[in-house]
Design a protein around this nucleic acid. Sequence first.
RNA 1: GCGCGCGUAGCUCAAUUGGAUAGAGCAUCGGUCUACGGAACCGAAGGUUACAGGUUCGAAUCCUGUCGCGCGUACCA
Length: 660
Amino acid sequence: MNIRRELEQRLSAAMAKAIGQDAPAMVAPSARPQFGDYQANGVMSVAKRLKTNPRELAEKVVAAVDLSDLAENLEVAGPGFINITLKDEFLQQQVAKSLADKEHLSVPLAASQQTVVVDYSAPNLAKEMHVGHLRSTIIGDALARVLDFLGHNVIRQNHVGDWGTQFGKIILSIWHLCMEEKRNDPHYLNRSDEKLKALPDKDDPAERKKALTPIWKQHQKDLYEDWDGKVFKDYLEKITSVLTFDDLLPAYQFVNLVESLAEGTDLIIDSSPDHKPVELAKVSSHVTQMLQNFDKPENKQEKDAWEYAKELTLKSCDKIYDRLGVLLTSDDVRGESAYNDDLPKVVEALKDKGLLTESEGAQCVFLDEFRNKDNEPLPVIVQKSDGGYLYATTDLAAMRYRVCELHAGRILYVTDSRQALHFKQVFAVAKAAGFVPSGVSLEHVPFGTMMGKNNRPFKTREGEIVKLMNLLDEAEQRALDLINIKNPDLPDEQKLDIAKIIGIGAVKYSDLSHNRASDYVFSWDKMLALDGNTAPYMQYAYARIRSIFRKNEHQASRDRQGADKPVARITLADPAERALAVKLLQFAETVEAVAAESLPHLLCGYLFDLAGAFTTFYESCPVLKSNEPTRSSRLALCEATATTISIGLGLLGIETVEQM
RNA sequence: GCGCGCGUAGCUCAAUUGGAUAGAGCAUCGGUCUACGGAACCGAAGGUUACAGGUUCGAAUCCUGUCGCGCGUACCA
């Protein structure tokens, strides 16, 4: 049961009766123990509005409500708070009830179940996942799990960046790989790349030109021999069986480097069959443009190359997802390219609605609410002056798909907070154009940056972006080091398994436990610490409880012959027992709040509080040493706590261990 | 310039969205216990919530201004 909501509903109804209009009771857990378990704050603001005495009004509300099945007498306190103390009997029943439902802890399903699209992760083609992708992936996954837990129909969407400017570069880099293979010169790209990187003065165009000249010549020559793409085609077939993601990456970076260095030089590639000379710096964008009709048979090798790059990239992402325990699969991938055919239709539809304006050659939507410094309208550009489309267009197309095909009632976009303006604009355009009915909720779920100790974005010592693989490796290694110190007697294999769970859990939890809206400082030591609001602390609390049960089963092993033991009657004699019970029962309302606000850190905070309540209980209330029936009752509280921690961490995508 | 966001204890973060005396963990200081897993527990100290006004029963939260930081700001995503 969601106690908070139950109280809210009953008290709100009583308020409506008392004052004749609807007003929220504003029930929240009490700020202090002396004020009971919950407090209702709504009376005061209503009284203000009605200009009546808040205390008198509170008394009226108290008289009008019947909470006798779950609460002691209500008290009006201070300027008009209503303090609620739950009945012990009620708490006992509820804990027993949730314990009987081990899968779901009797957390009620959402009253109105929605189809919720969660858009998260979104890696890019031919790039390795790095820390920049971590937050989206983890937060999105946790939200998806929570929504699913509450009975919503969750559709995960991995909006992979598989189109756009990098598109031509990818094809070009694979072409280079093919040419390398054809010349039987397997280290050509590496050699060239190293030479370019060693360039003493990258700011000097003459130097750059000099360094690029051999590469440029080779490029010309290769192109001359492959003017019809036949070599590309033949060798593509040959290399695809052996090519790996690790081959693709450097090739892609090589193309990037060449093009950035060629900027401002007069190096021209002119061996192409159409005799249109192209700047060396713009070959890849030329490739992109050339392939407007991507599906034509003569472009098959380009398409194959791109698809192959996509396959390699996604495989590499899957490894990360697998290690992270993220639920995304290939079925959830619907990249930007999936919307290519819809883009002209989106622009057409905007035109039909009369929303489209041409400005400086680009197709724009101007909405009144977006203005620049001088109060001039700010455009949302949906088509570039060269005819190309932008991410706004793709997002609009994706929205239409999600609403029309997936029947989304709510769409969550888990992306960096820097995209806030973009989403604000795109949402407004979608609503204005009627792409998304007003009943559908479009929500940007923004998050801040992961920072290093220096309060700058998290980088390696060398100042490079941290690859996710490396980050996870280090997390597991550090966890293993810790286990070796703290629990050296465990078998090695088990140590490794535990290290994985602890290491990955720590990374995820440290991310999820912070309010996602703000930047947070990443710290190895803090996230693996056993004190404070960390994953290991929670996992340790769990392992300790499990240890009690192992010991108990050992003691009582002969008594039970597989028969299900009845759920013990729970008594709450000690204040610590009672406080733990109240905390346990707040799981439902916490999960619901996480789903409503898309704030996973609320769940982390709750689990930490729960672990705290348990520790207090654990210290003051002996379990195995106490006599029946107290013993069974306390064991039940232990079990309820362990289950809540396990399910709670599970909703965050974090596993528990029996020993650590 | 304009827009958005942020500024809370020495450090890292909370504060149930306007509620009662702003809470945790680290670090510091002090204490407990032959310990159901010591990777423990309890306590103390630490705050004019950047600053100045305002709104009201009540403000870290809302409004105005100032300072500081971050991000964004027409064809990248």
